[in-house]
Nucleic acid binder design. Structure first.
Lengths: 199, 199
DNA sequence: TGACTGACTAATATCATAATCTGGTCACTA
DNA sequence: TAGTGACCAGATTATGATATTAGTCAGTCA
C-alpha cells in the first residue's frame, strides 16, 4: 500500500481515507490505516488535518461537492422551476442511493458513522442542499415561475424537510406510499403552491 | 401502594404503568413496580397483557387517544381545511411538547424509551396521525376546500412527513427558521396546493 | 373451577478490572 | 522544515463474577 501516487499528500490522504471510511466506517478506520494507505507517516496527517473528524469531514465534503456539481447543472437548466425541483429530488434519490458515505450521516442506520461526527457531517450536507434549493427558488422568482412574495429562506427549509422525508422514505424501503405516487403528489401540492397566482 | 382502587385490574395496571414509565422510562420500570403500584400480583399482569412491551404500547395508545380526541374536534371544526391543517400542526406541537411519553418514542432523545420498543410505539402514532390527516383531506374534498383529484393517501403521507419535520424541529429547538415563518410558508405552499384550481 | 399469586428460572444486564487499542504528540531525522 | 514513528493517556474492549428481572407455573383460595 506504500505506493507513491503523484498527487499531493493531502489528496492522497483524502483518497486513502475515503476508501477506508467507505469500507469500514468511521470508527473502524484508524489513523494508521489511512496514513499507511496514503504512504505517509502518521504525523504527516496532522500537518494537513487537525483531527480524525476533520479528515472525515473533508471526505464527506469532497463527495458532497460531486453531488452538488451535478445538482447545479440541474438547477441552472431550462425546465420550469417546479419541474427542476422534482428532478432535483430524483437526482438526490439516485445519488444518495448509490453513495452510502453521504447517506450514512444524513439518514443514520447504515453503521458507517454515528453520533457527533455524523451530526456534524449531516449539518454540512443539510446546509449545502438548503442553499441549493434557495438558489433555485430565487431563480424561479426572477424568471417568474415562482411567486414573488414567497419567503425563500423558509420555503427552502420547508422544501428541504419535505424532500428529505421523501428521499429517506425512498431509500429506507420504509414505503407506506410508493415513491412515484409520493413524488407526483409532492409535485401537485408544492408545485401549485409555488406558481404565481394566475400563471 | 396496595390501595384497592375501584377500577378494573387492567385499568389500574395501565395507570400504574403510565406513572412509572413517565417517571423512570421503559427500561428502569420493572414489572414488579407496575404490579405493586396496581396492587396486584405479578402473574396477574400476564393475564391482561402478553408482555412488558404490550403494557407500554397500551399506555402509549391511551395517551395517543387523548391527543387524537382533541385533534378530532379540530378536524371536524368549521374552518377551511388548510386552516384546520395549520391548527392541527400547532396542536401537535403543543401536545407533544407537554407529553414526553409520546414525544419520546417519536423523536428519540428523551431517554424514556429506546430501540425496538420505541420504534413500535412510533409506528402506532405515525399510523394514527396519518389516518387523521387522511380523514381531514377527505372531508376537505367533500366540502370542496381540497382539490378532488388529489391522491389522499399519498398526500396524507407527504403532509405527515412535513408536519412531523416541523413539529420535531420546533420541539428540538433546532430552528434554522423560526416556527411561525415555517408555518406561514408551509401554509402558503401546501395550502395553495390543496385548494381547488379556481377557488 | 378459574382468577389470582409469588417463588422460581433462564436470560440478560451490571460491574470491576485486566488487557488492548488508538488518536494525537513531539523529539528527532533527512 | 516537512516529515516521521515511538510513545503516552485515555478510551475501548474482553473477561468473568454478581445482580436484576421478564416471564412461568405449580399451587392457593373464593
Amino acid at each position: 500500500m506504500t505506493e507513491a501516487s503523484p498527487s499531493t499528500p493531502d489528496q492522497r490522504l483524502i483518497a486513502a481515507a475515503e476508501a477506508q471510511f467507505r469500507r469500514f466506517g468511521y470508527k473502524r478506520t484508524t489513523i494508521d490505516d489511512i496514513t499507511a494507505g496514503a504512504g505517509t507517516g502518521k504525523g504527516s496527517l496532522y500537518l494537513h488535518f487537525p483531527s480524525k473528524q476533520a479528515v472525515y469531514l473533508a471526505v464527506v465534503e469532497a463527495s458532497l461537492e460531486r453531488f452538488v456539481e451535478a445538482a447545479s447543472r440541474l438547477v441552472d437548466g431550462p425546465d420550469p422551476v417546479p419541474t427542476r425541483l422534482r428532478s432535483l429530488v430524483e437526482l438526490t434519490i439516485r445519488h444518495y442511493g448509490e453513495d452510502e458515505l453521504l447517506s450514512a450521516s444524513l439518514f443514520g442506520r447504515s453503521g458507517l458513522v454515528e453520533g457527533e461526527v455524523a451530526r456534524v457531517a449531516a449539518d454540512v450536507q443539510r446546509e449545502r442542499i438548503r442553499s441549493l434549493l434557495r438558489e433555485l427558488l430565487v431563480i424561479g422568482q426572477r424568471e417568474g415561475s415562482v411567486r414573488a412574495n414567497i419567503d425563500v429562506d423558509a420555503a427552502a427549509a420547508v422544501l428541504f424537510e419535505l424532500g428529505w422525508a421523501v428521499v429517506r422514505s425512498a431509500l429506507e424501503g420504509d414505503h407506506p406510499i410508493p415513491l412515484d405516487r409520493a413524488l407526483k403528489t409532492l409535485n401537485e401540492l408544492v408545485g401549485l403552491g409555488l406558481l404565481p397566482r394566475n400563471g
